[in-house]
């Protein structure tokens, strides 16, 4: 029990270190704010005005997708940050200290979560500006945002495994995009997967990103009969499915990342 308290305490100390680093790299920090604003505006105006739909506008349908995609992309930072710390020998130093491997990984994912809170906040503001609304209740709206954050947090652990396996920071973002590009596009992020060719459609329907996007739409009250979710189980029960995915990802990737971390040495 007390070792868990230490692990969390050490994790907070390390998360603070990561956040200080981010704040001291103004170009990186600004781009992490501008990117989400830009995607929101671009997608809203370019796609949002191209496709007309009855009832809730396509723009509103679209924004949940933009939110999901942005937090998915943000998780790359987790892997890149770890790889950089390995390359600079910081991980060697941390590993020679009497701290739990969980502390370092928890610290990393926690600071990336803080980053995602910020991204999501600016996207919500930008969204409200272009006419996106939470058409459900305040409570459901908050639940939707929390679900997005929880999913982003789980993905951080997945990308941590990528970062700890690939190691050269330059390679990490490419390797990560090989995972997250298909993950975020073969989904219902921007269009309903109804029209996807056979196998892609199956993937899209079972993709965790689709479940989370659909769950966010439901919680925000942004569902649209013109874009039916499809009738597979995860899309019919997106909230349960999303929570299931989040738990599953954590159960697999927390131990895997820890295992990888224990072996990580600078080369």
């Amino acid at each position: 029990m007390s070792s868990l308290v230490w692990a969390v305490g050490d994790g907070m100390v390390l998360a603070k270190r990561n956040l200080i680093r981010t704040l001291r790299m103004p170009d990186l920090f600004m781009s992490s704010l501008i990117m989400p604003i830009m995607s929101t505006l671009l997608f809203a105006y370019i796609f949002g005005s191209a496709i007309e739909a009855p009832g809730v506008s396509y723009r509103e349908f679209l924004l949940a997708g933009v939110f999901v995609q942005t937090v998915v992309f943000n998780s790359v930072i987790t892997g890149a940050g770890l790889a950089e710390d390995i390359q600079r020998g910081i991980v060697d130093r941390f590993r020679s200290l009497p701290i739990s491997p969980y502390s370092v990984l928890f610290g990393r994912t926690a600071s990336d979560l803080a980053n995602n809170v910020l991204s999501l906040a600016v996207m919500v503001l930008a969204g409200l500006l272009v006419g996106w609304r939470i058409d459900s209740s305040f409570g459901e709206g908050v639940a939707g945002l929390l679900l997005l954050l929880a999913f982003a947090y789980a993905l951080s652990w997945l990308l941590a495994v990528v970062g700890l396996s690939v190691r050269a920071p330059e390679v990490v973002s490419n390797a990560s995009f090989m995972v997250i590009m298909p993950m975020s596009f073969i989904a219902n992020t921007y269009v309903s997967p109804e029209g996807f060719p056979g196998p892609l459609r199956v993937i899209a329907e079972w993709n965790p990103v689709s479940a989370v996007a659909q769950a966010a739409r439901e919680l925000f009250g942004n569902t649209n009969p013109a874009y039916p979710p499809g009738d597979t189980w995860p899309l019919q029960n997106p909230i349960v499915a999303s929570i299931g995915w989040i738990v599953l990802i954590l159960v697999i990737f927390v131990p895997l990342a820890t295992h990888r971390y224990r072996k990580a040495v600078r080369r």
């Binding site: 270190r17 680093r21 060697d92 020679s96 600078r266």
Partner: peptide, 14 residues
């Protein structure tokens, strides 16, 4: 133990 490796392992931004 206290370790100092062959290459300085310090945080550039701190």
């Amino acid at each position: 133990i206290g370790l100092s490796g062959q290459y300085a392992a310090v945080d550039e931004m701190l």
